[in-house]
Each structure stands twice: as structure tokens, then as C-alpha cells.
Computed example of a mutant assay.
Amino acid sequence: MNTELINSIAKYVEQHIGEFHRNRIAKLQSVNLKELLSRKNPYLFKAKNIVIAGGMVESLASATMSSAEESIFGNWMEGVAMFVAEQVYAGYKSSAEGIDLEFDKEGVHYFVSVKSGPSWSNSTSMKKQKEQFAKARRVFNTSRKTVPTMCIEGCCYGNDNKGYNDSDHEKYCGEKFWTLISGEPTLFVDIIEPLGFKSKEKNEEYFVEYGRMINKFTQEFIQDYCNADGDIEWDKIVRLNAAIKAPKKTKKK
């Protein structure tokens, strides 16, 4: 374990972890009940025989926030990765489109697109990423033709490591990625403790806001989507979610 590097990461986390928790709360405060109902599959919830308004709202909110938190934390974790590369290899934020990080290591110039996890792409996004790597390399080679380059999809977790048909583009996940940007083979394990800085305190703040949202949305759900007997009116939910929307009328000039 590189104690000096871990201490630096701990200080970085202490200074920046609040951003992650603030963004979680901001996401909670930005959603509304109609948005939750519009984005999730009403047929699935009916098939699960959900009959309690609070249970319906809780399921909607949990599914929505789980997805949002993955994205929010992924973006924040990319900052940690860039900090590590900066400390160890003088890495820097790339100006190239689609590239997050550049640094030199053992005579090779690396272009890294930092991802949260391995399941980030489809065929369209992968094609675009390959084009961005190729462009970044072309621009770089106009001034430093003799320096070998390597393009990396760097995933903060997972172990889906692989090469592609283009030999200068590879996917590094988890241990392999953190080792690349730090030179420390155990860093992927060592960083877990610093990431827990004040997590209990910050989560308590989050769940206060989460509870408010659940209570508020449950009241709204009962009022708008339950009948006088307290039954969920599924037809209203399905219409909100899946009915064809009438085109907006344009104002005459």
C-alpha cells in the first residue's frame, strides 16, 4: 500500500464527497410524481400486485433513485480517478472531445475515457467513442509522431477487461484500471475505506429528504390515483404513462 497516495486520496474525498451527497439530494428535490409514473413500467407494478399507495410510491422512487445514484456516483468517481492520475503521472484533463484524461507512462501517451462501470455502451456509443479516440490520436501525432499512444476505456469497477480489433484500444476495468493510473496493484482495494468518509452522517441527511419525498408523493398519489374506496386506479396510471400525447398547439402570429 502506498500510504502517501492513500492519504492524498483521503484528503481529496474529504474535500469533495459532499458534492456527491448534495447531488443526490438535488435529484430527489427535482423529481415529481408524474415524472416517476411516466418513466416506469406500470404493467410490471400491476403484475407485482401492488395495492398500497405508499408501496407503489416507494417502489417508483427506489427504482428511480437507484439508477440516478449510479450515474451521479459514477461522475464523481471519475474525479477521483483523474486526481489519482494527476498525483502519480501528472495526468491532466484532456481537451479532446470524448476523452477525460491524458498522461504519459513508460514512454506511452495514454488517452483515457473514464467510465463508472463496464456496461456503459451500445453499438452507437461505442462507434462514437472509437471515432473520438482516433481523432485525439491524429491530433496528437501531428506534434509528437514518435511517441506511441494507447486509448483506454477506463472503468472504475468490474472486471470486463478486453482488447478490440483495433490493437491500440483496450478496456481496463477495476483492478487493471486503477493499477494503470496509479502504478499500485492494490489501490482498487485500498481506496474503499477513504470513500466511506462521513457516509453515516451524509446518508442520514439524505434519508430525511427521501422520507419527505415519499410522504409528499404518497399523499398526492392517493388524491390523484386512488378512488374513494382507496383502490389504485390503474387505468389513470396507464393513460398517463402510455397514451398518445396530443401535439402542442402553436400560437398564431
Rank of each mutant, 00 (worst) to 15 (best):
A242E: 15
K251E: 14
G158N: 02
V80L: 15
E205Y: 01
G196K: 12
V51I: 14
N2E: 08
F83P: 03
E97N: 10
S59Y: 07
I72E: 10
L240D: 07
E69Q: 03
A53T: 06
E193V: 14
H21D: 12
K248E: 14
G117S: 11
Y110I: 05
K93N: 06
A63R: 15
D190Y: 06
N41Y: 00
K105F: 07
K252W: 08
K216A: 11
D100T: 09
R22Q: 15
K248V: 13
N215M: 02
S66D: 11
T3V: 14
E4T: 12
A134V: 09
I214S: 04
D168P: 05
S62P: 00
K127D: 04
I72V: 11
M150G: 01
M56K: 03
S182V: 02
T142F: 05
T218F: 00
M1H: 12
F197K: 10
A134P: 00
E193I: 09
L180F: 04
N159V: 13
D104Y: 00
C156Y: 01
D224T: 02
G117L: 09
S8W: 00
V108S: 12
K176H: 10
G174Q: 05
T250E: 15
I99Q: 03
P118C: 09
K135W: 04
T186C: 09
T179M: 13
K11G: 07
E131N: 13
M126K: 11
D231I: 02
E170M: 06
E205S: 11
Y110C: 00
K200S: 12
G98P: 01
K198Q: 14
A47I: 09
K200H: 12
V139S: 11
Q219P: 00
G79E: 03
K216M: 08
Y92W: 05
K248M: 06
E184Y: 03
S71I: 15
W76A: 02
T250L: 13
V114C: 10
K216H: 11
R137G: 03
I244D: 11
R137L: 01
D160N: 15
S71M: 11
N141Q: 13
K48R: 08
M126R: 14
D224K: 13
S59H: 07
N49Y: 09
N159I: 13
N49L: 08
Y157K: 06
G196P: 09
Q15A: 07
N227C: 01
T179D: 04
F111N: 03
V139R: 02
K245S: 12
E170G: 14
S95Q: 13
E170T: 15
N165Q: 14
T179Q: 15
N2W: 08
F221K: 00
Y172W: 10
K236L: 07
E58N: 14
E58F: 10
F217L: 08
Y92A: 13
S62W: 07
G154A: 02
S59T: 11
L60K: 03
S30M: 04
S71Q: 15
M126H: 11
D100P: 02
Y12H: 14
Q15L: 04
K93T: 13
I181H: 10
D104P: 05
G54M: 07
A242Y: 02
L44C: 05
C155L: 00
I50H: 01
T179A: 10
S95R: 06
L187E: 10
Y92Q: 14
C173E: 01
G79Q: 05
F45R: 10
K34G: 10
K249F: 12
E205T: 07
V112R: 04
T64A: 13
